[in-house]
């Protein structure tokens, strides 16, 4: 064997890009900042607070727990980081308070982002 064989080298993932070991994260947390997953949304639910009765149906209906009730301000709050735009909440809202609005209509719409958050 005269020629030196190639090396396997090393793989260095910079600290700021490293993913937690096995993608295990602390729980429970209200919002899991490490893994935002709404980057394929094409519409989002927009609430009309005049029509909304705070019945919390959307809170129960959302498969991603994106709706929560802010007691102090007495409003429903939507979590943009996890909403997939599935529109279940819109269909379930008994008061017609939710509307599907295309992401393209928003300056921070996910379709406009260069990086997914």
């Amino acid at each position: 064997m005269s020629k030196k064989l190639p090396e396997f080298g090393t793989i260095n993932v910079p600290h700021e890009r490293a993913v937690p070991f096995g993608a295990v994260t602390p729980a429970p947390v209200h919002v899991q900042e490490l893994f935002m997953t709404s980057n394929w949304r094409i519409v989002r639910p927009v609430i009309d607070n005049e029509k909304c009765t705070r019945c919390l149906t959307c809170y129960i209906a959302c498969p991603d727990s994106c709706w929560s009730y802010n007691e102090e301000e007495d409003v429903m709050e939507w979590n943009a980081g996890f909403c997939k735009g599935c529109q279940i909440c819109i269909k379930q809202c008994p008061s017609d308070a939710l509307t599907a609005v295309p992401e393209l209509d928003f300056p921070d719409g996910v379709v406009r982002l260069e990086k997914p958050f």
Binding site: T10, V19, G22, P26, P28
Partner: peptide, 26 residues
Amino acid sequence: CPVSHGPQIRPDQGAPMDAQRAATFL
């Protein structure tokens, strides 16, 4: 000490995760 296993990761986390797994094989 509650933890969450198997969450969804973002596309930009896919490559570093692959690289971390490959590094283990080294």
